[in-house]
Deep mutational scan, measured.
Amino acid sequence: MDETGKELVLALYDYQEKSPREVTMKKGDILTLLNSTNKDSWKVEVKITVNGKTYERQGFVPAAYVKKL
């Protein structure tokens, strides 16, 4: 869990989004878990840094590609 009590997951593999509802992640990324009720895909939040500014983006990733921490 992070400092706000949200559950975290670790990306086990790289994943490139295939639709606007998904998010891209790299192996080793730590993501905030938002919903894990679907056995196939979990909703997560990723933090992306562009030019020194951090943005948050929500979307789905394959459940088999992440592990709860």
Rank of each mutant, 00 (worst) to 15 (best):
M25S: 01
K18D: 05
P20V: 08
E22M: 03
N51A: 10
Q58E: 08
S41P: 02
S19C: 11
Y15G: 01
V61A: 01
N38C: 11
L8I: 08
L12Y: 02
V23E: 01
K26M: 08
K68T: 07
Q58G: 03
K43N: 05
L8F: 14
T37E: 14
V61E: 00
S41V: 14
W42P: 00
K27I: 04
V61Q: 00
V46F: 07
A64L: 10
L69R: 01
E3V: 13
Q16V: 14
V66H: 03
F60S: 03
M25L: 11
M25D: 00
Y15S: 01
E45Y: 07
E17I: 05
A11L: 05
T54Q: 11
S36W: 09
V66I: 09
E45Q: 13
K47D: 02
V46E: 00
P20H: 09
D40P: 02
K6S: 10
W42F: 05
V9W: 04
K53A: 10
D2T: 14
L31W: 02
I30D: 00
F60L: 06
V44Y: 02
K43H: 10
L10E: 10
P62A: 04
Y55I: 13
L69C: 14
K27L: 04
M25I: 15
G28M: 02
F60H: 06
T32Q: 08
S41G: 05
K18F: 04
F60K: 01
K68G: 04
V61Y: 02
I48T: 08
G28P: 00
L8S: 07
Y65I: 07
D40W: 14
G52S: 05
V46T: 09
I30G: 01
P62S: 04
E7A: 10
L8N: 05
K26E: 04
V9G: 10
M25G: 02
A63E: 03
E17Q: 13
D40H: 14
L33Q: 00
V66K: 02
V23F: 12
S41N: 11
I48R: 07
L31S: 02
P62K: 05
R21C: 15
T4E: 13
S36C: 14
L31T: 00
T24C: 08
T4A: 12
T49V: 13
G52P: 00
K39Y: 08
S36Q: 09
K26S: 08
R21G: 15
V9E: 01
K18L: 08
P20L: 08
Y65Q: 05
A11E: 02
G5I: 13
K39T: 11
L8A: 05
V46R: 08
Y13K: 12
M25N: 01
Y65H: 06
E56T: 15
E56D: 11
S36K: 06
I48C: 12
K18Q: 14
K27P: 01
V23N: 01
R57S: 05
V23K: 00
K6V: 13
S41Q: 14
N51R: 07
I48D: 04
G52H: 04
M1K: 13
K68H: 09
N51V: 04
L8C: 15
V23W: 05
S19L: 07
I48G: 04
E3K: 13
V23H: 01
G28C: 10
Q58L: 04
N51K: 07
G52I: 02
E7S: 11
Q16H: 13
L12V: 06
T24I: 03
K6I: 11
L10C: 12
P62Q: 05
S36T: 09
F60A: 01
L69G: 01
A11D: 02
V61R: 02
R57N: 04
G5F: 13
V46P: 00
K53T: 12
G52N: 07
L33R: 01
V61F: 02
D29K: 00
V50D: 07
E45D: 03
A64T: 10
Q16I: 12
Y13F: 12
I48S: 05
K68S: 06
D29L: 04
L10P: 01
K26Y: 09
P20C: 11
E56F: 15
L8R: 10
T4F: 12
D2Y: 13
N51T: 04
D29W: 11
E17G: 15
K27A: 11
Q16L: 12
I30H: 02
E56Y: 15
K39Q: 11
D40G: 07
V23G: 02
K27T: 06
S41I: 14
M25A: 00
Y13C: 15
R21D: 15
Q58F: 05
R21K: 12
E45N: 08
V66W: 02
K18M: 10
Q58T: 10
M1P: 13
L12N: 01
D40N: 12
G52F: 03
G59D: 00
L33D: 01
T4S: 13
Q16G: 07
L69T: 05
Y13N: 08
L12H: 00
K26W: 07
S36V: 06
T49D: 07
K18N: 09
V61C: 06
T37Q: 11
L31K: 00
L69D: 02
A64S: 13
D2R: 10
N51C: 12
K43C: 15
K18S: 10
T24Y: 03
M25H: 01
V50K: 08
W42L: 02
V66M: 05
V66D: 02
K39E: 10
T54H: 07
L69H: 04
V23Q: 02
E3M: 14
E7L: 11
K26R: 11
V50R: 09
N51Y: 07
L10V: 15
N38E: 09
L12I: 09
V46G: 04
E56P: 12
P62C: 06
T4L: 12
K18Y: 05
T37R: 08
T4M: 13
K39F: 08
V44N: 00
Q16E: 14
K6C: 15
L31P: 01
T54G: 05
R57V: 08
D40R: 10
K18P: 03
Y65D: 03
T32H: 09
L12A: 02
L12S: 01
V61I: 08
P62D: 04
T37Y: 08
A64W: 10
G59T: 02
S19D: 11
V61W: 03
N35S: 12
E56I: 15
E3C: 15
D2S: 14
E22Y: 06
A63N: 02
D29C: 08
A63T: 05
Q16C: 12
T49M: 11
L69V: 11
R57T: 06
K27C: 08
M25T: 01
F60V: 04
D2E: 13
S19I: 04
T4N: 13
L33E: 02
N51G: 10
Y65M: 12
L34I: 15
Q58H: 07
I48L: 09
K39A: 13
V44K: 00
G59Y: 05
N38K: 07
P20W: 08
R21V: 11
V50E: 11
K26N: 08
L8W: 13
D29R: 01
K53L: 13
G28H: 03
F60D: 03
D40F: 14
L34T: 03
Y13V: 12
A63G: 03
F60G: 00
V61H: 01
F60R: 02
S36R: 07
F60Y: 15
K47F: 09
L69N: 01
T24S: 15
V44W: 04
L12F: 04
L31I: 07
K47N: 08
V23P: 03
D2P: 13
Y65G: 05
E22G: 14
Q58Y: 06
N38D: 14
L69S: 02
S36Y: 06
T37L: 09
V66T: 02
E45V: 14
R21N: 15
Y15A: 00
K47L: 11
G5K: 15
S41F: 15
Y65T: 08
R57E: 03
T4P: 12
I30R: 03
W42R: 00
E45C: 15
M25V: 10
L8Q: 09
E45S: 15
Q16K: 12
I30Y: 04
K53V: 14
D14I: 06
T32I: 15
E7R: 10
R57A: 06
L8G: 03
K6W: 10
T32D: 02
E22S: 05
M25Y: 02
K53N: 11
S36P: 06
I48M: 10
K6D: 08
P20T: 09
K53W: 09
A11I: 04
D2M: 14
K47M: 10
D2G: 13
V23S: 03
D40Y: 15
D2K: 14
G28A: 03
V46W: 06
Y65F: 13
A63F: 01
L34W: 03
M25W: 04
V46M: 10
L8H: 09
L34P: 00
T37N: 12
E22R: 03
W42T: 00
L31F: 05
K67Y: 08
K47G: 05
V46K: 12
K67S: 09
P62V: 06
L33N: 00
K53R: 12
A63V: 05
T54R: 06
T24A: 06
N35Q: 09
W42Q: 00
M1E: 13
K68R: 12
T49H: 11
N35D: 15
G59L: 06
K6Y: 12
E45L: 15
K26C: 12
K39P: 15
G52K: 02
S41R: 14
A64V: 09
K39H: 10
D40Q: 09
A11N: 02
V50W: 08
K53I: 15
L31A: 07
V44G: 00
E56R: 15
E7Y: 10
T32G: 06
A11G: 01
P20N: 10
T54L: 09
M1R: 12
V50T: 09
K68P: 09
D2L: 14
E7G: 11
S41D: 07
Y15T: 01
D40E: 12
K43Y: 15
S41K: 11
T54D: 08
G59N: 00
